[in-house]
């Protein structure tokens, strides 16, 4: 059976439907719970084993020793591919993924996230 305009009904129905698209950024978008966004670092849990640095596919993460058992973490947001491998590699659970995905920065050097022990 050949039927020209098979999709016509669908198209006409869509005239009376609300648009599927969302007016982002005016309407806030929520990512699903397990979404892999920006990496969060908890300095008090870090033991400085640097396994995350070893496993990072893009060398985006750097752990530096700043004092006795004190470490700071620097993540280059431009290099990070948000795979979350560093979180899996960390035995001390010092790293975790967040749902934060609005990470665009104006300028190359501003894209570095630094967390220092206080």
């Amino acid at each position: 059976m050949i039927n020209p305009g098979k999709m016509l009904k669908e198209v006409l129905c869509s005239l009376f439907r609300k648009p599927v698209t969302v007016l982002y950024p005016h309407v806030k978008m929520e990512m699903p719970v397990g979404f892999r966004g920006a990496i969060k670092f908890s300095p008090d849990k870090c033991s400085g084993c640097k396994l995350c640095m070893r496993d990072c596919p893009t060398n985006a993460i750097t752990i530096n020793k700043v004092g006795e058992k004190q470490f700071e973490c620097e993540i280059d947001l431009g290099k990070c591919i948000y795979c979350g491998q560093c979180v899996d590699s960390c035995f001390k659970k010092a790293l975790e993924v967040t749902r934060d995905m609005e990470l665009a920065q104006a300028g190359k050097n501003k894209g570095k996230l630094k967390v220092t022990h206080r």
């Binding site: 990512m31 699903p32 719970v33 397990g34 979404f35 892999r36 979350g84 993924v97």
Partner: peptide, 8 residues
């Protein structure tokens, strides 16, 4: 569904 199950 994929974003929900895998994270991306």
């Amino acid at each position: 569904v994929l974003a929900e199950l895998t994270g991306n």
